[in-house]
Design a protein around this nucleic acid. Structure first.
Lengths: 346, 346
DNA sequence: GCGTTTTCTGAAAGCGCTTTCAGAATAGCA
DNA sequence: TGCTATTCTGAAAGCGCTTTCAGAAAACGC
């Protein structure tokens, strides 16, 4: 037999209880709560006292139903896996902190339910708008939401053609341009490995295009055998480099794709007796907190993830306020030079 | 002038629209949606077709109001700052995935609003129960929630006296015992620095007690000048060790408190020309993903954070189902030996 | 065939709040 | 003092859904 050790709650006080105790109507209590119409100071005082005595908190669902808003912002994420998440959430929280919105987070790819009225875990049934992280929503679902006028802001991927959905990303082109210039012009590297992110990842594609463009501009060939897939993970980075080494491929630098992958790259190089940066220079992307502590401290492109979260949430708040935020925002990135490239900065 | 580029939404279809199209009452539609009473197959088919044609999704607030449940689990966190968060959330999500609950995350210490009816960001006004992370709720608020019978599970701190609230933590005692034994018995260290976590942190206090107890059992003195505060941060760890070094204090090992602090400890030692582990052994706690990539790879106590999230959420689901979960759960930890202690394992 | 039970369905009430309209009381002005 | 405007308040309707009760029709058993 189950027995609930938690004590049974008295029913929650309602607005009617407050009204009764204060000797007024529920309309008056609502007016005091929401400051929607004048109430005499004496009555207001009685209402506030009743609220305090009863420890009354408004029932959010009732309020949401009556005002036809959820006062909730959704954040749709894929499976939580990397170091992006904490700074992103921090940025989002910083933006919504002064508002009345609450943040609903969905962070997994749930198995679709076999009932036709259950769509995305976050949508207009439970939020006023949402932030959508790359790879966390079915494109058809995204389009459906857009066509219904559900406010959204995209993170790290652009909207479908003809859909005017604001999005926030990084200036991948400038970042990769800086990486290549630094490796080629400062350190004289000529055989540079490019590790891709996951298949179909927009950031990865953009970074690769910029990589190729800059290499061509500088007159350095991109060898096909030097392009592999690190999948933005330590494991992927390590496997990819180990494979190149096993195949006897010659290279003097690695752009690892991101910092997670860079750690795997460093491990594979260390295990194979390659010195970093003397034999092989290594550069990452993200500048996660740990990168400075690696050995050698990682040269990487600093991507302002927290700011991305803040900007995205700010755009969504604008949309919700009936404004028109800028459609595409590319946050500037910056090459942070430490030691893994061959420089000697901390 | 503001102009909203998002197209105006048609009003959302309601249950009445579905009923009208299917030629039945809203009661029947509700019965089909919720499988609460028999409906003839012919009628059910008509209803499902209407739902699909109208792309109907139930209005969550209406449903919540009618059933007097929110079908929401709250997760109350302090400011998102460390590497705990992603695995914790992953564990929570894994537990609630097969259920109908949605996860509401509050991850900042908002300034309290100056209105008397606004309490905790998460409470019975917007959730059916919540997980409370250490240092994320005012103790009076916690007690108030408990007295109202609001289901809660605590993460990494025990409940107030006489409050029977389930909690999940780690077996700090065994973890620290293993650390001390390893440093003393295997590596012969005698002057071990203990870096504390934030003031009042339960984990920190428990680990210190176990540290002292094991040191005494092994006949190794705990020198007062070797106990300092690293605050569970890289910065704190670095500052604390730098100060000991500056004061000329002699030590041959450091228990850093957690892995974040250990990175700071490594940095300070490196800058001061101390070799790790030859001159000073270093041990952390948590085993965050990056620890294996440090130089040297960090010997640390593996704490199953994801499992903690999973167990905590499972306990809360039990409470919500009217069951009585085990009150205190201590998850086992395990010393993961790498190289920073003086061993030579990867 | 008749009485009883089961299946199915719609109407009405209600969840807890917001908002609008009507009316009473008060204040201001000529 | 009388008229008009303003302030304040309560009653009622409604947000979109769930649930209960009543009643009709069908099925079952003797």
């Amino acid at each position: 037999m189950s027995h609930n050790d938690q004590r049974k709650p008295r029913p929650r006080p309602t607005i009617s209880d407050v009204a009764r105790l204060a000797g007024v109507s529920i309309s008056t209590v609502s007016r005091v709560l929401n400051d929607t119409a004048p109430v005499s100071p004496e009555v207001e005082q009685r209402v506030l006292q009743a609220i305090e005595m009863l420890n009354y908190t408004p029932h959010l669902a009732a309020r949401n139903l009556a005002v036809r808003k959820t006062e909730t912002i959704g954040l749709l994420l894929p499976e939580v896996g990397n170091n992006f998440f904490a700074p992103l959430l921090r940025g989002v929280e910083n933006a919504i902190r002064p508002t009345e919105y609450q943040l609903l987070v969905h962070a997994s790819l749930r198995v679709p339910d076999p009932v036709p009225w259950r769509h995305s875990p976050i949508g207009e049934h439970n939020a006023d708008g949402m932030l959508v992280f790359v790879n966390s929503i079915d494109p058809a679902e995204l389009l459906r939401n857009y066509e219904r006028g559900f406010p959204m802001v995209l993170l790290f991927f652009p909207p479908p053609p003809h859909a005017r959905i604001p999005y926030v990303g990084f200036d991948n082109t400038t970042g990769l341009c800086q990486v290549v210039e630094h490796l080629v012009q400062v350190h004289g590297r000529r055989r540079i490995v490019y590790l891709r992110g996951p298949l179909g990842n927009v950031d990865s594609d953009e970074r690769e295009a910029a990589f190729r463009q800059t290499m061509e501009r500088l007159g350095v060939p991109v060898y096909p055998e030097l392009v592999a897939r690190g999948n933005y993970s330590a494991y992927g980075g390590e496997q990819a480099i180990q494979e190149l080494i096993d195949r006897g491929v010659d290279f003097d630098a690695v752009f690892a794709g991101d910092d997670d992958a860079a750690t795997g790259v460093l491990a594979a190089l260390r295990r194979s007796g390659r010195a970093v940066p003397e034999d092989v220079a290594v550069v990452g992307f993200d500048d996660i907190p740990f990168s400075v502590h690696l050995n050698p401290p990682l040269t990487t492109v600093h991507a302002p993830v927290e700011q991305a979260g803040y900007v995205a949430a700010s755009k969504l708040l604008s949309l919700l306020a009936g404004e028109t935020p800028e459609l595409a925002t590319r946050l500037p990135v910056e090459l942070v030079i430490r030691q893994s490239c061959g420089c000697n900065r901390a």
